[in-house]
Design a protein around this nucleic acid. Sequence first.
DNA 1: CTAAAACCTCACGTTGGCGTCAGGTGCAAG
DNA 2: CTTGCACCTGACGCCAACGTGAGGTTTTAG
Lengths: 123, 123
Amino acid sequence: MRIGEVAEKAGVSVRALRYYEEQGLLQAGRSPGGRRHYPDTAVGRVRLIQQLYAAGLPSRVVREVPPCMDSDEERAPRALLDQTAAERVRIDWRITDLLTVRDRLDDVIAIARDPDSDCSHVQ
Amino acid sequence: MRIGEVAEKAGVSVRALRYYEEQGLLQAGRSPGGRRHYPDTAVGRVRLIQQLYAAGLPSRVVREVPPCMDSDEERAPRALLDQTAAERVRIDWRITDLLTVRDRLDDVIAIARDPDSDCSHVQ
DNA sequence: CTAAAACCTCACGTTGGCGTCAGGTGCAAG
DNA sequence: CTTGCACCTGACGCCAACGTGAGGTTTTAG
């Protein structure tokens, strides 16, 4: 596949794909003329990258998480495992954080509906 | 309270507090000499701001959500309610997103532990 | 063969949430 | 009175994740 097709299928911009390559997040082969071409797996990979970004993981960590498709590289999974586990913990924190915020927003909504309601617990 | 005390209690920088005021997120009174002073409720307010930021809400929206403590302003809660509800939906999306990412990270961890495991569903 | 898509490589612009330095004050203690 | 710390107001710096041209090349359709 060429870059435009991947971009469309993954729902991101062409620029973003070039950026991902520049950052070492997504490899691409080259045609004799110098144009990028991607395997079919690239689309799924891009979606994964997007999710990881959406989850707030720094690109540093995303770069360290090339699963399955790069499995020919038998690198030390030690630090990777630790770092990934650590990120998992942070994800959990963010989830509970978001749940708290959702409750807060519910408070705001309730207050907007009934201004006389008690809101002492919000301080 | 003065700014340093609020900063310490809320666990943020003095700069951040000045920034919040600049953005209209947090009001402060002034002493004759021009120094900020805050009510005790400011600490809780700052924590709320931090949570909303951590949840990815734009400051534009955070500015629109001054609950309880500013209740003397009887402004139109109509648009506020809608916007808040919309943000609640987006929060829900982010939560499911994070749950997905957490599963992905679990995949990565599993692969790191057992490189021969099936990972076809990751594509 | 030619035109027009689609692609390429720089390289600078943008936005948010502060960090950080510079240069000047308020105020409480000794 | 003076020392020193906490505070003040600008104003510029930074980083990430791209957007947005500029200016040139490659591929493909007709």
